[in-house]
Amino acid sequence: MTESDKEDRRGSPPTRREFVDGLLTCALGATAIAVAFPVAGYIVPPDAPESQDASVVLPFAAEELLPNSGRVFRFGNEPGLVLRTPAGELRAFSARCTHLSCTVQYAPEQSRVSCACHGGWFDLSGRNVAGPPPRPLPAFVVNLRRRAGGEGHDIVVSRA
């Protein structure tokens, strides 16, 4: 059937061939949906159990952390940064750079927190002071607890 024949038949009831072609198209379409639906469901990852930990005890003593230094620790599924300022105060932040989620580090020469990926800088209060980061690092609460039966103190970091 040529294009002009099709033009002539516009508006009239479908021929048997057109009807069967339509059925076939519907069947193939239904098959495509029946395949695409489970595949789409499969590709979306199942929810991983989010860490509900409100606080974490760091695996090193407070006394091990010298002034003007910092260490990265594990807080649930995300990294945290604990640092001791040159004045001796303990502070903890999320170690995820607010720019593109690289893990930040303590830079003792500058006494600041730096992100190596794109040159972001944060001061000792976690404020974004230079480079691309748009927001300050979220701060955590730091508490000290005397170690049971031993010397020194545990660092307990909890969400603000």
Binding site: P38, Y42, P46
Partner: peptide, 9 residues
């Protein structure tokens, strides 16, 4: 057990 339709695949 966990992935949707994983048993089917």
């Amino acid at each position: 057990t966990r992935v949707r339709w994983g048993w089917l695949v």
